[in-house]
Amino acid sequence: MILYDFEHERPGSLQDVAARLAELGPTAGILAGGTDLLPNMRLKIRTPATLVSLGAIAAQPPGTDTDGWLRIDALTRLSEIENSDTVRAACPMFARSAHVVGSNQIRQAGTLGGNLCQEIRCLYLNQEHDFQFVAPCYKRGGDCCYPYPKNEKDFCASVFMSDIAPALIALGSDIELVGANASRRMAVEDFYTGVGMTPTVLRADELVGAVMVPPPPPNSGWGYHKSTIRGGLEFAMVVVAARVALGEDGETCADARIVIGAVSEGPSRARGAESALVGAAPTPEAIAAAASAAVAECRFLPHHNFSVEYLKQNAEVYLRRILSEAFGRAKTGPGKGGQDQ
């Protein structure tokens, strides 16, 4: 199928890209690996008049900032993240989350920035519109919503499906946004709005420059799971990610970060469940209670023919498993199962 006609530019630096975005305004689109954007342009979900390509800019290799945080360039291909010894040693959950995205071909082309800024998904949206539908939905700039006909104007109840964002949030990572005149840095969880129409706080004249992951707290461990039906080349039905730390006694939970993704407009942190775990011994009962509290406090939408009941049950079971794994890794000390991809 032939794409509509558009212009294409390849500036030589992130600052030049930001400057062009500022000049072109909302008619511009940022092209990274294109694995999300180009199919969406075919389906006219996005119709930028000019693509500003990041293709001429080389990604900086993963490195450590002076404050000890690991810095990953937004232009890094997912295949490089999953195979990077630096990333696998410093934050195996991040490498794991990149490893389960799409297929090898998607990971060879797809970048970290594109993954974190990917368009939300919805059964109506991700198909040829002209063929079956009379009017475009809110997200396409129209005036209705197909799965939720009663939705208010411009309320889009679609699902954000990045496999990587929940892992980065569980790791307490920051994201750097580069603008023409200034850059800003924020926690990855604050990057997401939870609003389907505008899923991130990225402005039209900004782009993602890098992600920074802090060094793990002492005695910490992680757990991550992406639920799918066939286990390959598939978007998630549920993603759960957790990072926990034990206190000096090695017996009580000192810190917990629990994230559920791919079930609503943005990844959500289960803060209630986290604080209930802190100070308690991670017994199977405490873990089960945390899993069920997390599912109760996070927003779930039915998506891709999965009912909310099914998704909740799936999330609860896997939260129990990944929390046990995380506490297990926290107990076994340094290394913490670092290489067990």
Partner: peptide
């Protein structure tokens, strides 16, 4: 929604 350019892009 953003309208795509109508004119033909340069080869």
């Amino acid at each position: 929604m953003i309208e795509a350019v109508k004119s033909r892009s340069r080869k």
